[in-house]
Amino acid sequence: MSTPPCSPLDEELLENESDSSDSEISRRTFVKAAGILSAGVATGLPRMAEAEAAQTAAASVPQTISVTLKVNGKSEALTLDTRTTLLDALRDHLDLTGSKKGCDHGQCGACTVLIDGRRVNSCLTLAAVANGAEITTIEGLADGDNLSPVQAAFLEHDAFQCGYCTPGQICSATALLTEQKHGTLSTVSFETGNLSNPQLTDNEIRERMSGNICRCAAYPNIVAAVRAAQRASA
């Protein structure tokens, strides 16, 4: 006996039943997969926590290094955290507090010192990098009671107010005079075309001292002091 054909209503019921069955299987599969995944994550979490704790503990253990800093003509042997900056080594370990911590981001110049005659921001320089180099701070510029030409000029021209930035300003100006003697060029030198022997005009001085900020705005007196120091040391 042949099967009687389905009516349109029967076909619709069959289709709905098939869709419902497929949907039920899909939901079951999803729940099963989610359960397996959750179990795996739960099992792995303690291991991840242990690994993170071990990594944190390892990072918190300071790594030290032995360095010899030649500061103002005197060698100082120190054992420091490898992350110690030259500024912190000078201030906290050698009690040379003339170099100031201003912005601690290399933007204000209050921490300027000289390394092998060149000015650097000591807050951005690792002490390990300065190992064995000749370091000069504001404390090492004078010869006993005799001030350096730059120090004397800053006093004579009242090139400071609160004085916080002054050590960095003086160290920077000291290096500036050496750079000018060696014919080092600045942006102003290229703008004016004075490339063979740039003179320390006011604009040259302002450009070359632009890395040192004075919140008291004693800039005109600073420029005058640098110009006077250049004449005195010529």
Results as ranks from 00 to 15, higher is better:
R206L: 11
S189Y: 05
V71E: 09
H182K: 14
A42N: 11
H182S: 14
P5I: 07
Y164T: 01
Q55F: 10
C216T: 04
L13M: 13
I222R: 00
I25Y: 05
G183H: 12
Q199V: 13
D95W: 04
L177D: 05
A34W: 12
V129A: 13
E139P: 06
F154Y: 06
R118V: 09
G144V: 06
D158T: 10
Q161R: 01
A224Q: 12
A133P: 08
C216D: 00
T136S: 09
L86D: 00
C111F: 01
L78N: 04
I65G: 02
H157W: 09
A159H: 04
A77L: 11
A77F: 08
L45I: 14
C162F: 06
R208N: 02
G106L: 04
V223D: 02
A42K: 09
A53L: 13
E191A: 13
F190G: 07
A217E: 12
S38I: 10
I222Y: 00
F160A: 05
A127G: 07
C216S: 07
A54I: 14
E134C: 08
D95A: 11
K181R: 14
L9W: 12
D22L: 12
R27H: 11
G193S: 05
S99L: 01
S38A: 14
S21L: 15
G40A: 08
S99N: 03
K101S: 11
G183M: 12
R91M: 04
A234F: 06
M209G: 04
E191N: 09
T68R: 10
R91S: 02
S2V: 15
S172V: 00
V223H: 01
L69W: 01
P8F: 07
D10I: 15
G35C: 08
Q151F: 08
Y164W: 01
T125I: 07
P149K: 07
G117M: 04
K181I: 10
A228H: 09
V71T: 07
L69E: 04
D88F: 06
V71F: 10
A217K: 12
A159L: 06
N212I: 01
R27I: 15
I135G: 05
N146G: 04
L80N: 00
E17Q: 15
V120N: 00
V31F: 14
L114I: 03
